[in-house]
């Protein structure tokens, strides 16, 4: 789905990404994993063109991202980030349907799609008229997910979608997200620093450190044959029964 070739990115004196290659397979969930500041969010933003790479190029479905097509390409990529990034002046429904209404979908089509998404994300329908300020953290995240899925995109890009939630809600949403991923069968790229979450939601793990990819592959593979002492340390630092039930 995505092909990144020798991309690098520098921000005001710090090299966020060293030149690297990455292949994101279609129809699978790829997890970008690593400690904060490792460059995983930067990598995600290169995929939907929120950031332009300093070197190298990003291909989406075999085509390089071009400025003039960026807006239409983004409509095929749902994006949700930590805290939801909801528009505070719009209701839950207004947030979810903003882009569809901008594209002049008929109101029947908008409402039909919204009903599907409410059911899919298990969002309480009576809360659709509420503003973000009146929603719980978990509900906000579900709205954010509905907004990302509204146009039925090819790809879902999620940046720490569950980062700001308390553990109970987080646990519940992790389960819901896995159901959604498997029902939709879409290409998903998920950024997280939580190994357990990555293992639970992802097929393919990309472990990053200081702007470099340390190792990638199925999680069990990383655990079995760590390519670097950092991989082992990262696993140990999570204090999880890694071999346990999740994966």
């Amino acid at each position: 789905m995505f092909e990144l070739e020798q991309v690098s990115k520098r921000f005001a004196g710090t090299q966020a990404l060293q030149p690297l290659d990455l292949h994101v397979p279609e129809g699978r969930t790829t997890v970008l994993l690593g400690p904060s500041g490792c460059g995983k969010s930067t990598l995600l933003r290169l995929m939907n063109g929120l950031l332009r790479p300093d070197t190298g190029r990003v291909l989406f479905r075999g085509q390089p991202l071009r400025d003039e097509e960026l807006l239409t390409v983004r409509q095929r990529m749902g994006y949700a980030l930590q805290g939801g990034g909801l528009f505070p002046h719009l209701t839950a429904e207004g947030n979810a349907t903003l882009m569809a209404r901008y594209l002049k979908w008929s109101s029947e089509r908008v409402h039909a799609r919204l009903r599907e998404l409410v059911e899919l994300t298990r969002f309480p329908p009576d809360a659709l008229g509420r503003y973000p300020g009146q929603l719980s953290g978990g509900q906000r995240q579900r709205v954010s997910l509905m907004r990302a899925l509204m146009l039925d995109p090819d790809v879902l890009l999620l940046d720490e979608p569950l980062g700001a939630l308390d553990p109970m809600i987080r646990y519940e949403l992790q389960g819901d997200l896995r159901d959604i991923f498997s029902r939709l069968g879409k290409t998903v790229v998920l950024v997280t620093h939580d190994l357990g979450e990555g293992a639970f939601l992802g097929d393919q793990v990309v472990l990053m450190r200081e702007g470099r990819i340390v190792q990638q592959g199925p999680l069990a593979e990383l655990e079995r044959a760590p390519a670097d002492p950092f991989v082992t340390r990262f696993f140990q630092a999570q204090r999880l029964p890694v071999s346990g039930g999740h994966a």
Binding site: L50, L71, M77, Y79, G85, L86, F87, M99, Y102
Partner: peptide, 13 residues
């Protein structure tokens, strides 16, 4: 907030 601005940009508006 930057995440709100980024969300609007990422939608393709």
């Amino acid at each position: 907030a930057p995440e709100v601005r980024e969300s609007a940009e990422a939608l393709g508006l």
